[in-house]
Computed example of a mutant assay.
Amino acid sequence: MRKLFQEDLHNLGDKLHEVVVLVHQAMGKAYRAFETANVHLAEEVIADDVQIDRLQAMLDEKAVELLALQGPVASDLRLVVGALRMSTSMERMGDLARHIAQLVRLRYPEHVAEHSLRRVYQEMAEKDILIAKKLVELLLTRDPQLISEIESLNEQINDLHAGVFITIAGDQWTAGGAASADAALTSRYFERFADHGVSVARKVGYLHTGELNAR
Rank of each mutant, 00 (worst) to 15 (best):
L55W: 09
N213K: 15
E44H: 05
R2P: 00
L106M: 15
L4H: 09
P109T: 00
L55Y: 09
Y121N: 05
G82E: 03
M27N: 10
V39P: 00
L16T: 14
I166M: 09
R2A: 07
K133T: 05
A101C: 03
D128W: 06
D48S: 14
E35Q: 08
D14M: 15
F5R: 08
D49G: 08
Y121F: 14
S87Q: 05
A57G: 09
F34G: 02
V45C: 08
D159Q: 12
G163E: 07
E91D: 13
N213I: 11
D95C: 02
R107V: 04
A125R: 01
R54H: 12
E126V: 06
H17D: 13
F5A: 04
G170K: 06
L16R: 11
E110A: 12
H111F: 09
Q6F: 13
A30I: 00
A33P: 08
L69D: 11
V73S: 05
A33T: 08
D53C: 02
M86Q: 06
V136A: 10
H208P: 01
A97Y: 00
A194P: 03
R202G: 02
G210K: 10
I157S: 06
L67P: 03
R118C: 01
A68E: 07
R119W: 03
V198M: 09
S148T: 11
V39L: 01
D182C: 08
H24Q: 15
L96M: 11
T209M: 02
H208V: 11
E123R: 06
E191N: 07
A194N: 02
T186N: 12
R188W: 12
H99E: 12
I46G: 02
